[in-house]
């Protein structure tokens, strides 16, 4: 039952994150798409993630990819790092905080107890 609750909470937070960052992405496109607009500050960054199983890491990478504005390019299980491409890298701290708060607790509740490979 706690797993079911964790899954439901994760889904709700995910939908919220998708819509919020979807709006952000639209804003970035419209801002940089105007004639004379500035292109967004794109960046490749690494983000450490909490200990979890390989399946959990795959789910985390997929959710991060589905959230507009970030694409998972590589998952490094040994160093527990996600390599992300970020569309709007002006506030990476908020981005990392978003991943930590929205996705990690739910995924750790679902996949954290399995053996980390």
């Amino acid at each position: 039952m706690p797993r079911l609750l964790a899954a439901a909470g994760l889904s709700l937070r995910f939908v919220r994150a998708v819509f919020l960052s979807g709006l952000q992405t639209v804003a970035v496109i419209l801002k940089s798409g105007r004639p004379g607009g500035t292109p967004p500050p794109v960046a490749l960054v690494r983000v450490r993630f909490a200990p979890m199983s390989a399946r959990g890491a795959a789910l985390l990478g997929s959710l991060v990819s589905l959230t507009p504005g970030t694409t998972t390019i590589d998952i490094d299980l040994e160093r527990r790092e996600l390599l992300l491409h970020v569309l709007d890298a002006s506030d990476t701290d908020a981005l990392v905080a978003g991943i930590r708060q929205d996705f990690e607790p739910g995924i750790r509740a679902l996949f954290g107890r399995e053996v980390t490979t």
Binding site: V18, G22, I29, G33, P39, V42, G69, T71, H85, L87
Partner: peptide, 29 residues
């Protein structure tokens, strides 16, 4: 409207990786 904005992003964003954000994410949304 969002589909058109996504296509607009594919036209206007500076490189392939940025365009991909617009196409896949905004398109699916």
């Amino acid at each position: 409207a969002l589909l058109v904005i996504a296509a607009w992003g594919v036209i206007r964003l500076p490189d392939a990786l940025s365009r991909q954000h617009a196409a896949t994410k905004a398109g699916t949304l």
